[in-house]
Design a binder for these strands. Structure first.
Ligand SMILES: [Mn+2]
Ligand SMILES: [Mn+2]
Ligand SMILES: [Mn+2]
Ligand SMILES: [Mn+2]
Lengths: 218, 218
DNA sequence: ATTATCTTTTTGGTATGCCAAAAATAATAA
DNA sequence: TTATTATTTTTGGCATACCAAAAAGATAAT
C-alpha cells in the first residue's frame, strides 16, 4: 500500500473512533474517504495484514498500537500545519484544512518539530482540536458539544467538529469563533434549536450545527 | 496520469534541457527519475498526448509552451520551499532539496506566493538556482562553471549544479559557499584540476567538482 | 418469525505506473 | 561499409488502487 493511502485510512479511523464508539464501520470510512465500500473492505484487510488495524469481518475496525502511533503522527502533522498556516502565514481557519490535507503527507519529523517549536508547541489547532506532542501524547479536556449544554449556562467556544469552509464562515459571521463567550438562553421545544447570546446578539443555532460546536463550561 | 507523475517528468525535462541541449534523451530522464527506459517511453507518449511535451520517437523530447509553464511553476515551488526551509526554518543547504522534493507537489499558489513574499521575493535559491516569479519569468545571469574560468581570475561563487548532501558538505568544509570569493591560481596540466585560493587557503578542485560549481567574474 | 432494509463482502473488471526481456533503431568504431 | 555498441521501443506482465453489480450477512420492523 502507498504511504499516502495507509495514512488516509489510519487518520480516518482515528478521527471516527475518537469521536464516537471505539469500533469504526466500513461505511463511515468509505464516506469520509469518498471511496466505494468494496474498496474499504479491501483496504482494511490489507491494513490488518500490516498489523495497523484489527479488522473483524462484518463487525468493524480499530487501530492497533502501531496503527495508533502512526495515526497520531499524521494527526500531529495535520494540526501543526493548520496552526502554522493560520498563525504564521495568515490563512483563515476555513482555508487551512484543505492545504494541511496535502502537507500532512510530507513525512519529516524535524520539519514538523521545527514548525511546532516556532509556534511554541501549541496544544490546540485553529479548530480547537488537540495536537499530539512529538511522542503522541494528547492533552485531554472536559469539552462538550453545544448540543449537550444546559439552559442559562455560560460557555466558551473551544472548537468545531466540522471543518468545511461553509460552516466555518457561517460561524465567523455570528462571531462564534474560538474563545468567544456565549450564554445559552433557551432550547426550542419544537425543533431543539438553541438560542444563545454571543457578543450581545441573539443567535439561533440548529441542532445539526450545535452538534459541531465544542464548548467548555465557565 | 497522476499530477505528481506529470510534475516529476516536466521538472526533469526542464532541468535537463536548460543545462544542456534543448532536446532531452529518454535515458537521461530515466536516470534522473530512477525509472526503467521502457517506462519513460510510455510516460513521454502520454505527456505528448496531453500536449505537455513534443516527443519525437527515437530522437528526443522538449516541452511545449503549456508544459514549460507547468514546469516553471514546479521549479518555482521547489526553489521557494528550499529557500524558505533554509532561511526561515534553519535547515542546511544540503538538507533542503530532499524535503522540497516532496513539498513541491503541494499545489497552492497562494501558499507559495505567501512564502515568497515573506522571503522578499527572492530570485535565487540556496544553491544559486534562479527562482521563477509567479508569472514564470526567470532572471538571467552571466554565470559560468568553475571549469570554464581562467587562471589568475577573481570570481564569486554563485551556485552549484549538484544538490547531493555529500557534495554540499564537501564544499562547506572548504568554505566554498555561496558568495565566497575565490582566486584561480593554476590549472594542472596533468588532470585539469583547479587550484584556487578561498579564505586564504589553497584548495584543489577536481575537474568533476569544478563542473558543478557556478561562479561569476568579479 | 418473517420480511424488508441496510451493510458488508465477493466477484469480475478498469486504469495507472511500473519493470524485464526481446526486438528494432540509431550511433559509433573498425 | 560492416560490425559493434548503445539507445529506444515493443511486448507481455505485475502490483496497486479503485469501482459496479451481485451475493451474503446483519439489523430492524412488522
Ligand atoms: Mn483539518
Ligand atoms: Mn483542525
Ligand atoms: Mn533542489
Ligand atoms: Mn536548489
Amino acid at each position: 500500500m502507498r504511504p499516502e493511502t495507509i495514512e488516509n485510512y489510519l487518520k480516518t479511523i482515528y478521527n471516527l473512533s475518537s469521536n464516537n464508539t471505539a469500533v469504526v464501520s466500513n461505511q463511515k470510512i468509505a464516506d469520509k474517504l469518498s471511496l466505494n465500500p468494496a474498496t474499504v473492505t479491501e483496504g482494511l484487510r490489507k491494513l490488518h495484514g500490516l498489523k495497523y488495524v484489527i479488522y473483524e469481518k462484518s463487525y468493524g475496525s480499530r487501530l492497533t498500537t502501531s496503527g495508533s502511533k502512526l495515526a497520531l503522527d499524521i494527526v500531529r502533522r495535520h494540526r501543526i500545519w493548520e496552526t502554522y498556516l493560520a498563525k504564521e502565514l495568515g490563512f483563515g481557519w476555513d482555508e487551512v484544512h484543505a492545504i494541511a490535507e496535502e502537507l500532512e503527507h510530507v513525512n519529516n519529523a524535524k520539519l514538523i518539530n521545527k514548525l511546532a517549536s516556532i509556534l511554541g508547541n501549541p496544544t490546540y489547532d485553529p479548530h480547537g482540536d488537540p495536537i499530539p506532542d512529538a511522542k503522541g501524547k494528547i492533552q485531554k479536556s472536559n469539552f462538550i458539544k453545544l448540543s449537550e449544554t444546559k439552559v442559562k449556562g455560560n460557555y466558551k467556544v473551544m472548537g468545531v467538529t466540522d471543518h468545511s469552509p461553509t460552516f466555518l464562515k457561517y460561524l465567523e459571521k455570528h462571531q462564534l469563533i474560538i474563545g468567544a463567550t456565549i450564554n445559552v438562553k433557551t432550547i426550542e421545544d419544537f425543533d431543539n434549536s438553541i438560542v444563545l447570546v454571543c457578543q450581545k446578539k441573539e443567535v439561533n443555532i440548529s441542532p445539526k450545527a450545535a452538534e459541531c460546536i465544542i464548548v467548555q463550561s465557565i
